[in-house]
Amino acid sequence: MLAVLKKEFKSYFSSPIGYIFIGIFLAMCSVFFYLDVVAYGNTNFEYMFYSVTTILTFIVPVLTMRMFAEERKSGTEQILFTSPRSITAIVFGKFFAATLVLLVAELFTLIYFAILMYFGEPHIQTALATLGGFLLLSMAYISFGMFASSITENQIVAGILTAGVFVFLWFMPNFNSDLFGFSPINVFASEFPSGLISPEAVTLLVSFSILFIILTILVLQRRKSVK
């Protein structure tokens, strides 16, 4: 797993994708930091994350769309899947590489927290809960993006499918409020930024990730016998 993780993480930064992802993420964070925190003159670091989560909808696909689609299109999956590494190890390697890129981006937001520390006394536990929840939400999203990338050889299709499903999950509770508890982004927003960590929320986000990691593994294993 480590071999794949290392190579994938490096390749995010040997292509523009890693820089574009972190750049856009931080640019948007700055905007929301100003609009949601500075403009109101408060020291609530977590407020900006209500808005920041929404941009995950559009930037996670950038990170995940090439994961398997590109390998399939260029044929390099032949090298990867004939190496003595299991499909599970390859999938986890790629998943954690993307997660690591996101984590790097997320750690940069600590700068905003430092700014708030300088001017006031932000609540550290709430900030940590928010960052933790945000990571879980991102992992759930990455797992779905990875799954979408494994079912097509066209990166664009994978990207649009991923963003489309995220938009749907976001507005799903508007159609039927019973579905609120199944919408990762809404579950995140209703709990973590207020410093709450409920087992239900964690379970939803973690099981969402696990579900799509398993589905990705199944898709790739099945393609071996259909291909």
Partner: peptide, 29 residues
């Protein structure tokens, strides 16, 4: 698979790596 070295048809490669990086990655795999 540990016993096998495979050179596929149409030589698929990671184009954004150098030969050294590629061979090192394969060695690691």
């Amino acid at each position: 698979k540990r016993e096998i070295g495979y050179m596929p048809e149409n030589v698929p490669l990671y184009l954004d790596l150098t030969p050294r990086e590629f061979v090192r990655y394969m060695a690691e795999l």
